[in-house]
Simulated scan of single mutants.
Amino acid sequence: MSTPVSAPVTGGIKPSAARDDSPRPGFVARLSAEALGTLFVVVAGLGVPLFTIPQSNPLPASLAAGLALTAAMLAFGYLSGGHFNPAVTVGNAIAGRIRLTEAAAYLGAQLVGALLGAVTLFAILRTIPKISDSRAAFDTVTAGFGEHSITQAPMAGVLLVEVLGAALLVAVYLGTTSRHNPSRAAAPFAVGLTTAVLLQLGQAIGNDPFNPARATASALFSNVDSLGQLWLFWVAPVVGAALAGLVFRGFAQTAAQLQPAVPNAVPDEDDGEEDAAGARAAAAPAPAQDSRTADGDEARDFFDKRGV
């Protein structure tokens, strides 16, 4: 009676998660996915509160925005990784999961998608006879502090909330999309629900969006005074994203130093991830490496089911 031989595991990947031979999404496809996903997020995030009729809308605006983000991640995340937010892209770049050049292109695509979404909503507002001032309507959903805040929240308070909220949102994204997270299948739902909770908090303070692309889109179509405060809704979320990215970069380096060397493991360089030096030292040279171009991020591995 012959002894069964177990299937070898190569490249540190379990047989159940073996890579397929399907081509990687092209760069234009990834940027298009980011633009389209951001457009959806902005249309839902701004459109629901813009067209809300008091006491007749059963779905809160914050929950609608969170559900839209979940749907966008499920629909387009397999192409681009599902950022749809400059803060998330910055966090991924600092964590070493995406190249800086690609991160810059992602930011441009997100701004294009956000502006297209805002233009669409503005055009719809212009067709409604009862809304005489479309810019005044946008004022109700535009982020601001001081006199532009519903609760007259000062600049310091709004800044702190934006930094904290962006850091938490990016941390949830980085943690749930990590290939080492056994619960990564629930990442779109975790990120969407986190967004909904944070928007519910930010709405009462200064319409904090925790998303610079969305803040830019709404500010451009509101009164001119809103543009003077837009800088805060870029600086604060980027700072929060940077903090989360640095923390997760430290986690990756620590995990790489603690991971024992695997004799036949192939160094994981998928999706443009800038591996930590400790991870490269721990992995032994492989006889062959994946011939596909490495040009995405680790989050897309999650959506592709290509990472572990």
Rank of each mutant, 00 (worst) to 15 (best):
P267S: 02
E298Q: 13
E269C: 11
Q257W: 15
D271K: 02
D297T: 08
A261R: 15
Q259L: 12
E274C: 15
G250K: 03
A261H: 12
F251E: 02
V262F: 10
R292N: 00
Q253D: 15
P287W: 06
A255T: 12
A288E: 07
A255R: 11
V247D: 00
A256P: 03
G278M: 00
A294L: 09
L246V: 10
E273M: 10
F251R: 02
L246M: 10
A279L: 13
A283K: 04
R292C: 03
E298G: 03
D297K: 07
D268K: 03
V247E: 01
A286L: 00
A279G: 07
D270L: 01
F251Q: 03
D270A: 04
A282R: 05
D275R: 15
G272I: 03
A283R: 12
P267Y: 00
A282D: 06
A294V: 14
P287I: 10
A256G: 07
A276V: 14
D295C: 07
Q289H: 15
N264F: 15
R292W: 04
Q259K: 11
N264Q: 14
A279W: 10
P285R: 04
G245P: 05
R249I: 05
E273D: 02
A288M: 11
A282C: 07
Q289W: 14
A283H: 07
P285K: 05
E274K: 14
E273S: 07
A279Y: 05
P285V: 07
D271Q: 11
D271C: 04
A286P: 00
G272D: 03
A276M: 14
P260D: 04
D297M: 07
P287M: 09
Q253C: 09
V266K: 05
F248I: 04
G250M: 03
E273G: 06
V266T: 09
T254M: 08
D270H: 05
R280C: 02
R249L: 01
G296P: 00
A283T: 14
A261N: 15
A279H: 06
A282Y: 00
A256W: 06
D297S: 09
P267V: 00
P263R: 05
R249V: 01
P287V: 10
V247S: 05
G272A: 00
T293S: 10
E269Y: 06
P260R: 07
